[in-house]
């Protein structure tokens, strides 16, 4: 198995870590749209950096899917009728 680029780069870990912190924070304490937006921008920017650092694409998609799942949690019980 090839070595993980994401887990060996402090920059990427910091980017994803900060985004995860903001994402979880906005889940626990809903606080408008600024924090989720910053989190999404951080994920997008870190993902671009990960791709430039030639991270494994499957690994990148795994991280993105974790963020997607975290965001989908906030929809629980808030969907339904128009």
């Amino acid at each position: 198995m090839t070595e993980s680029v994401i887990f060996n780069s402090y920059l990427l870990l910091a980017g994803y870590g900060a985004a995860a912190f903001l994402c979880v924070f906005s889940l626990i304490k809903p606080s408008g749209y600024i924090i989720p937006a910053i989190s999404a921008i951080l994920v997008a920017a870190t993902t671009v950096a990960a791709l430039l650092l030639k991270a494994d694409l499957l690994e990148v998609s795994l991280v993105v899917l974790v963020f997607l799942a975290l965001n989908l949690v906030s929809f629980r019980g808030k969907g339904g009728k128009k």
Binding site: S26, G32, Y33, I34, I35, P36, A37, S39, A40, V43, A44, V64, L65, F67, L68, N71, L72, S74, F75, K78
Partner: peptide, 11 residues
């Protein structure tokens, strides 16, 4: 869920 919706699109 306004911001989360757009985050979901990005992800």
């Amino acid at each position: 869920i306004f911001a989360q919706r757009y985050s979901v699109y990005v992800y």
